[in-house]
Write a protein that binds this DNA or RNA. Structure first.
Lengths: 381, 381
DNA sequence: AGACTAAATGTCAGCGTTGACATGAATTGT
DNA sequence: ACAATTCATGTCAACGCTGACATTTAGTCT
């Protein structure tokens, strides 16, 4: 059948070293820059029965493949009698039109839109994906999900693979510092829409949150409630979103005459444990903060853990809503992640329609949900 | 360019009635059963510059398309000098091999595996998807996500669309009551792997949770702690998973001599509010339960809300872990959703390797995480 | 030198589909 | 009754790519 050697006689076998895809032929050794993925594909199964084509159906129905094609596409120029004969034949052969061939014929335009995410385990992106999926489905487009594991180098590799599959458009959460490698593709007509952060060195549409204003407004509320020592706990400042939120935080403080807040800023790491640690440190200060802002949902988890029973002595507002925040009475700066996805998908569709219009940037509004934790006043010292 | 009429002069335009895909030609009216989706596609953009093909690159480099193909595939039978000339030409034309054409040539076998989910907004499936994506990526396969919105009728429609795209395999959370419509496709060599619940009328591999034993073991623990009035709150009993968990619950009670538990079973609806309501009702009984089992994570949310401050008087164990359950000290029957996805993806790969082996069913182990809420004893009456 | 091998490259066909165009039959108009 | 029109169907080529096979060129061996 095919010449394969395995390192084990019985399944489960090793697929990383033993498998050679017979459909790729033994020519395939893959060249960097083109088919760079150093991954052996699993072999195609040997089908007991071949898949029926238009020609097969035509043969059975006694008509030409073209007539079958007409029936399948619903052309009106087919006699009722022929149509029925063809449909019967098609059903009996379990015919299913081959969209690869159709798309090739039509200039290799597919209905697939890729969504490239860094970290698949962040529930935030899932809700975004849900919004995208739904919006795209309404336009006959399918969403393909690809992850880059937050690895900038992997981003280009993944995108390259997707482009070879001729995806119709790209939706992405930019990870790499430079998306310039996509400029050529954009000129070839592939829309690129960035989500949550803007692209660099690439003319692309984008959908971002009201990071600056949302955070500033929350901090202004704390200040109005009398707080002066307000901490900001978050992930590395390098990320666009966190930059913006930090800017918003500082802006609100500045308005209140607090010019240097570096003492209350903890920006090192997004992971729960570290945010948790930061909060413990802050609370151990001789003049601990009376209010805390968490820059994202992971930081919020950390803050919740660190506050423990001191929960009603320190005001707290988190950016991003999370499950059970309502039950716990935690105030958050919230927004609709699905709306983010929906708007991004809309931009894709708009861009497919008008490839040359000026780039658009949509800002998804945020709003403060008051549940108690953010409305605490300043404790009497 | 193309003959399109819009119902509005300026974007954003209506894409549901105005758009005709010029690539699909005006023949396209779509026939039920084949291209049934009643959705007009967005038009292909008019690229400023055409996409380069092997022939274009060959022309520029002064060689035949086949030689370019050899270079791209990394064949060794190309002189170093030619190789470089070709690579230069390819880069300057921004050449990118067309996988549609390649796949067509190779018998329409793609590297795309579809994951069909009912409800995209359930974070559980996202973690599963993450596991799938990662495992598949290791085998050179991409994951395409499709949602059915928990609509059984939509399932077949979505699957049909995917099959026309010639996905390599199907991963699905079965929603419809019958997957028999896939039997033909399976015989054609497309592996089908069911996740979380088994398929009906279809020989398919599946990955499910240790629903029965996990629940039974949790209930046994409650019984050992002295509980006799143990409630079970969950979604409709029709779902396989909930059936199994309910069975496990009843089994453990039966072992303790409690033969009729219907009084403590609340199975109506998975949504938080309703589970919440159920718990309130249970607690209002003259002989309220001293322990509660929640059948899934949504029910758990409801229970948490309903318990409120009575949290330390009623023992509680939820099926499925959830964010901040640790901070809240809630005991859960947990498992690794990513592992579910990983194993499912492994089954896909194994099935691609051996299409005819006997169907496999993998059970993902669950384990009780004790955090306090499930270890409460029986209050003194 | 002539036969023989290996390496580099080319020619061709076909994967399944559908536009463009052609053909033949039935229907219409005058 | 005959051209003009409409309808049903067929033929062919091409989308981009790569296996199978053919050809050319350079290099090796006796």
């Amino acid at each position: 059948m095919s010449t394969m050697s395995y390192c084990s006689d019985t399944p489960p076998r090793c697929y990383c070293c033993c498998m050679i895809d017979p459909t790729v032929s033994n020519e395939a050794a893959l060249v960097p820059g083109f088919d760079s993925a150093p991954i052996a594909l699993v072999p195609a199964p040997a089908p007991a029965q071949a898949r029926a084509t238009l020609a097969d159906v035509g043969r059975l129905a006694g008509v030409s493949p073209k007539t079958v094609s007409r029936v399948v596409l619903g052309s009106s120029n087919v006699s009722q009698e022929t149509r029925e004969r063809v449909l019967t034949a098609a059903r009996s052969l379990r015919f299913r039109p081959n969209h690869l061939a159709r798309n090739l014929r039509h200039g290799s335009v597919t209905n697939t839109v890729a969504f490239v995410i860094g970290d698949l385990t962040n529930p935030f992106y899932f809700l975004v994906a849900a919004g995208i999926e739904r919006e795209l489905a309404g336009h006959g487009l399918m969403m393909i999900l690809a992850a880059t594991d937050d690895d900038p180098a992997s981003e280009e590799r993944v995108v390259e693979t997707l482009l070879k599959q001729r995806v119709r458009a790209l939706l992405m959460v930019p990870i790499a510092l430079d998306q310039g490698y996509l400029e050529g593709e954009r000129q070839l007509g592939t829309p690129v829409v960035c989500i949550d952060r803007p692209a660099h060195n690439l003319i692309a549409d984008s959908v971002v949150l009201e990071n600056f204003e949302g955070t500033a407004e929350a901090v202004r509320g704390l200040i109005r409630a009398g707080h002066r020592r307000i901490a900001f706990v978050c992930s590395p400042a390098a990320l666009y979103t966190h930059q913006e939120r930090l800017r918003g935080y500082r802006q609100a403080l500045r308005e209140a005459g607090i010019l240097d807040s570096s003492r209350w800023e903890r920006l090192e790491n997004a992971d729960g444990p570290t945010a948790e640690q930061s909060v413990r440190e802050l609370l151990a200060l001789p003049d601990p903060p009376t209010a805390i802002i968490a820059g994202n949902n992971r930081a919020s988890s950390g803050v919740v853990r660190a506050l423990g029973n001191r929960f009603d002595t320190v005001a707290f507002i988190g950016f991003d809503d999370f499950e059970l925040a309502d039950a716990a009475g935690i105030s958050v700066i919230a927004y609709d992640p699905a709306e983010l996805g929906r708007q991004a998908a809309r931009l894709v569709v708009a861009r497919l329609d008008d490839p040359v219009g000026p780039p658009q940037q949509i800002e998804i509004p945020t709003h403060l949900i008051q549940r108690g934790s953010g409305e605490l006043g300043v404790p009497l010292d």
